[in-house]
């Protein structure tokens, strides 16, 4: 009968060394991330507070079934109040056709069309409270926002959209929520009839993570050296 041979002690030592190297590298990477400096400017948008209690007037999140007439077929002429993207996305039918106020940071691009422009307005904490994640490292979940159609020259208000280097302009818009906007192929949108800049864009500083730069330099040199060494070894083979 074949017996199971014992494992040579050298094999154990090699595995322990390998495990040790992995742990050291993991600790190094964790340290590099922890060493990242943050310079946090003021991002809190005045006038955008009370985001937790914004939706006065909307009491039902019930979905209107097809064939059942909605209680309010006509959009509200009066402003419903301030809404948040998460609430609208949760109950799009409840807000359909209502005039609302919405505050959000312009994100990415202003998609200019002939008679207006599309923008994405985020109202998540990165937009209105703590600022972009890279500037502070405080995790607040996914982004959240709504598509807003800026009629006519309202888009000219936007000077700087948000991105990796900017917390973008924060707009306060008034407009109608459309659950299925026919002009957007059925998308959930707000068609803004009025807008103003609530807070101007804030540039983000990206202070260099020096320990990470040093580690990157050393590792790059090591890698380069190994590539050269391997090339030479390959030529000898």
């Amino acid at each position: 009968m074949t017996t199971r041979p014992s494992i040579h002690p050298r094999t154990y030592v090699q595995w322990i060394i390998a495990l040790g190297v992995v742990l050291v590298v993991a600790a190094l990477i964790a340290q590099l991330r922890a060493a990242k400096p943050h310079e946090t400017p003021e991002f809190l948008v005045e006038g955008a507070e009370n985001v937790d209690d914004p939706d006065a007037g909307i009491v039902s999140c019930e979905r209107t079934l097809p064939g059942v007439p909605k209680e309010e077929d006509e959009p509200d002429a009066e402003l419903l109040g301030r809404v948040t993207s998460s609430r609208v996305l949760e109950c799009p039918d409840a807000f359909d056709g209502h005039l609302v106020t919405y505050i959000g940071e312009v994100i990415g691009d202003v998609l200019q069309r002939d008679d207006g422009a599309w923008v994405l307005l985020n109202d998540d904490p990165y937009a209105l409270e703590v600022g972009p994640l890279a500037s502070h490292g405080e995790f607040r979940g996914y982004n959240s926002g709504l598509a807003v159609w800026l009629e006519g020259d309202l888009a000219d208000l936007v000077d700087q959209p948000g991105g990796p280097d900017w917390r973008g302009d924060v707009l306060l818009v008034e407009g109608a929520v459309l659950r299925t906007d026919p002009e957007d192929g059925g998308g959930l949108t707000i068609r803004a009839s009025d807008a103003k800049v609530l807070a101007e864009a804030v540039p983000l500083s990206h202070p260099v993570n020096r320990p990470q730069a040093v580690a990157a330099g050393l590792l790059s040199l090591t890698a380069l050296g190994l590539v050269v060494f391997e090339r030479m070894a390959a030529r000898r083979r």
């Binding site: 590298v25 260099v208 730069a213 990157a216």
Partner: peptide, 22 residues
């Protein structure tokens, strides 16, 4: 910071790759 982050990842991968080759 992205340059250095990518350099750390790339270098580690290249080091492992070349060490196994050698």
């Amino acid at each position: 910071n992205d340059v250095t982050a990518l350099a750390v990842g790339a270098s580690l991968a290249i080091i492992i790759g070349r060490l196994t080759e050698v």
